[in-house]
Design a protein around this nucleic acid. Structure first.
Lengths: 239, 239
DNA sequence: AGGATGTAAACTGTCAACAGTTGTCAATCC
DNA sequence: GGATTGACAACTGTTGACAGTTTACATCCT
């Protein structure tokens, strides 16, 4: 037993290669390192990470179920590409989920949770006063995460986070810019107020409105060719 | 190759073994053939199905992401066991999703879809008049599926169906008996009426109420020891 | 007898090799 | 010249084997 191993704790080998690989590929997809539509070669990825193809294949199976890649038999796996309609669907679904979480948290909230939520709100206000868009983006994310966690429904949280990851497939990098911090902030205040007041229905409506506004802001910001890469998904401009 | 069978056309080999295995294991779990809490041995399953361990392992990875099994490194995979609180969470989440779908369909419905929906409703009425619980159960399922499909949001449908599968993990077999067909039928009529009338908000409320009533009926029907198998999940009756 | 310890069996994690399929590209034929 | 065909290359699907870990059990000591 080599006792020179300088690991702080032995917590190293409890991780299986498959999990590591899946996490790494997911990271590459979410950061855009592997852009949507890219074809992923098992051999190449395996060689790149210094593992065999087994763990890579298993990781792919997980990513497929998560909706991040598509697998075609005997052809390979590609990073999933999301069309216009699907993007709208995802926004709507996420809105419904977030509304549900706001509602649920409003019904179950504790005083401590309210305190934490108020804190996040103040962080955002501070970022606005400092006109620090980067900080606002971060605290904004934090605010959402807080609600998602405090709603207490773990399955809903898992689904929500999965959808959020999926949405990275069409939100281009650098969307961290917030167009209208004040408007966004007002929506956050409405959500927090309803939750803290313990009014589930009001919280639900506020949460839904917030995501819908985000959706509309995003769609409005699209140049028409954004989804041109897969035009066959586009036509259904109805509804 | 004992798995693939009497396919009339050669359309069999486009299916990969992993998919077949995953489907088969999922079937065994949903039918209760592999009960919740059971430990699954890769070697045993592989031998039983006449394939090697590779496809089985890949299938497991997919089932894990779907929430049907849990995988612990170096220990194995067990059919997921759902505690009382998680069951309630799943019902609530499903209610929120179904409500969203009713709302969405009400906003997008076509005349043709309304016709189909009316047809399903009549099928259920016929089953009630005939006092055929089996037929009612079937047409009831059909009614729900129709809404889920016609809402047009494919991602929402996938999530909903995943949740529904997961709920099989705690709904014991033979729950197909419907306690109160008339009450259930009234709720269905309210949903259909709101959708056909094109009133999204009313449809949402009707759909939500329906699942909530189903949840309460289910919870009320529990003998207190139903979830005793994993008592550590029970205590958190607070919050 | 009861608990600790060491050993063996069984199983999971990983890998490398084989088999089958898809897509490409050049040679051939009309 | 253009389309068809056939072989080759690259890749995926599947398998069997090997290595490391966990678990159960028998043994030994107190």
């Amino acid at each position: 037993m080599p006792l020179d191993d300088q690991k702080p704790f032995h917590a190293s080998k409890v991780q299986t290669l498959t999990v590591l690989v899946q996490r790494e590929i997911e990271r590459r997809i979410l950061t855009g390192e592997l852009p949507a539509g890219d074809r992923l070669s098992e051999s190449a990825l395996a060689a790149d990470m210094g593992v065999s193809r087994g763990p890579v294949r298993e990781a792919m199976r997980g990513l497929q179920q998560a909706g991040l890649v598509e697998i075609v038999a005997n052809k390979g796996v590609v990073v999933r590409k999301i069309g216009y309609d699907e993007a709208v669907d995802l926004y709507n679904l996420r809105g419904s989920l977030f509304a549900f979480m706001c509602e649920t948290m409003a019904a179950r909230r504790t005083d401590e949770q309210c305190g934490v939520l108020k804190g996040k709100l103040e962080d955002m206000e501070a970022a606005i006063r400092a006109d620090d868009k980067e900080a606002y983006f971060r605290t904004n994310l934090d605010f959402h995460t807080t609600i998602v966690e405090f709603c207490g429904n773990n399955r809903a949280r898992a689904v929500y986070e999965g959808i959020a990851k999926e949405m990275h497939l069409f939100r281009r990098r650098g969307l961290s810019r917030i167009e209208n911090m004040e408007a966004s902030m007002q929506e956050h205040e409405a959500i927090a107020a309803a939750i803290i007041a313990g009014r589930p229905e009001a919280a639900r409506k506020a949460g839904l409105k917030h995501i819908r506004n985000g959706r509309d802001r995003f769609l409005a910001s699209l140049d028409p060719d954004s989804f041109a890469a897969d035009p066959e998904r586009r036509p259904a401009a109805a509804e």
